[in-house]
């Protein structure tokens, strides 16, 4: 996508007086996938929520600068672990919800197109309860594509899926979100090793950059370099802060 900006996140956060993370500088390269890995409670999701402009219940002191100097407001799309499809709407209505919420014209033809891009053609009129977990997450991806934002913030969107569906979804997301600035927060070193151009482990002491394989993502599940990187990440996660 043209104009997907790089983002520099600098700052520290406190949660009810106690520091959550100290001064960190996170570089998110424009048009590429950056994975933020780390143990639970270290503040990964908080970083993502601050970038998304969402309430995070922490006291954040710092700044978020995009390479084109424009504010990020209304330029980010958000996908969470839960698909967040509204159960009372059909898949098509769910994909169109952004326009409805802003009071914009709803482009149903484009929404139908997005639904078929994620492989759900023919399911437009189904309610989320009639779709499988994997199909619902594809629906959420179609809704994200419909928003057509340059910056995509993914908060463990694949973690609740079974192994096969997760691998399929990772490939589909990587294919469809190409050339956008993507920040993926995840627990899973395998996911980070497969999908990211840049991977960073977030620890209580700060950020650790991981050397990634030369091959571009999406990398093969059984690719030796990917497996080695995955092993390295897991090791760092198990070692804990240095």
């Amino acid at each position: 996508m043209m104009g997907a900006p790089s983002i520099t996140f600098t700052g520290a956060a406190e949660f009810s007086g106690a520091p959550l993370f100290h001064d960190i500088t996170l570089e998110i390269t424009g048009g590429e996938w950056t994975c933020l890995l780390g143990p639970s409670g270290v503040g990964k999701t908080t970083v993502l929520r601050i970038i998304a402009g969402l309430d995070s219940a922490v006291d954040f002191r710092g700044e978020i600068i995009s390479s084109d100097k424009k504010p990020l407001l209304n330029r980010t799309a958000y996908m969470a672990q839960s698909d967040l499809l509204f159960p009372w709407l059909t898949l098509l209505e769910n994909v169109c919800i952004g326009a409805k919420l802003r009071g914009d014209q709803v482009d149903k033809a484009r929404a139908t197109q997005m639904i078929s891009r994620v492989g759900l053609a023919g399911h437009e009129d189904k309610k989320p309860s009639q779709l499988s977990g994997g199909q619902r997450q594809r629906g959420a991806l179609a809704r994200t594509l419909m928003e057509d934002r340059p910056v995509i913030l993914l908060d463990e969107p694949f973690s609740a899926l079974d192994a096969k569906t997760r691998a399929d979804m990772q490939e589909l997301a990587a294919e469809l979100l190409i050339d956008r600035t993507v920040l993926l927060v995840t627990h899973d070193p395998a996911e980070a090793a497969r999908l990211s151009h840049h991977a960073i482990v977030m620890q209580a002491t700060g950020l650790r950059h991981i050397d990634m394989p030369q091959t571009p993502p999406v990398r093969g599940i059984d690719d030796p370099q990917t497996l080695a990187t995955q092993g390295k990440m897991l090791k760092i996660l198990r070692e804990g802060p240095q």
């Binding site: 929520r49 998304a52 402009g53 969402l54 407001l73 209304n74 980010t76 799309a77 958000y78 969470a80 839960s82 967040l84 509204f86 919800i97 952004g98 409805k100 919420l101 802003r102 009071g103 928003e147 913030l153």
Partner: peptide, 21 residues
């Protein structure tokens, strides 16, 4: 809260968020 987060990143107006969500 996830619904409201989604609406916020989508740039929902308050009245539409109230009505639709």
């Amino acid at each position: 809260s996830g619904y409201l987060d989604l609406a916020q990143t989508m740039g929902a107006t308050r009245s539409r968020e109230l009505w639709h969500i």
